[in-house]
């Protein structure tokens, strides 16, 4: 299974729905809640998000090489091979 990384905001309902979906599918993932980060760590993560998605929106989910912005369950399922 390709590595999964989720960039989210702790206050965003769509991010929560994405987490819920991944948990229900028993997918392990690296979660980064950007609004809880500070200083250089936050800056670095924001640069990372911009580099991989050319924008800065949440949720942004990376599945292997695929980047999906927003909670699109069908596209996430497909990228996970489910």
């Amino acid at each position: 299974m390709a590595p999964v990384k989720l960039y989210a905001l702790s206050t965003c309902g769509h991010c929560r729905n994405t987490k819920k979906f991944l948990d229900e599918c028993e997918i392990s993932y690296d979660l980064v809640e950007v609004d809880l980060l500070e200083g250089q760590e936050r800056e670095d993560i924001l640069e990372e998000i911009k580099r991989i998605s050319q924008q800065c929106a949440f949720p942004t989910i990376v599945i292997g090489e695929k980047v999906i912005v927003g909670f699109h369950e069908d596209r996430i399922r497909e990228a996970l091979g489910l």
Binding site: L9, T11, C12, G13, H14, C15, V34, D35, L46, C56, F58
Partner: peptide, 11 residues
Amino acid sequence: YGYMSCPCRLA
């Protein structure tokens, strides 16, 4: 923050 910033955007 003292104001209701949008929950889906980074304040």
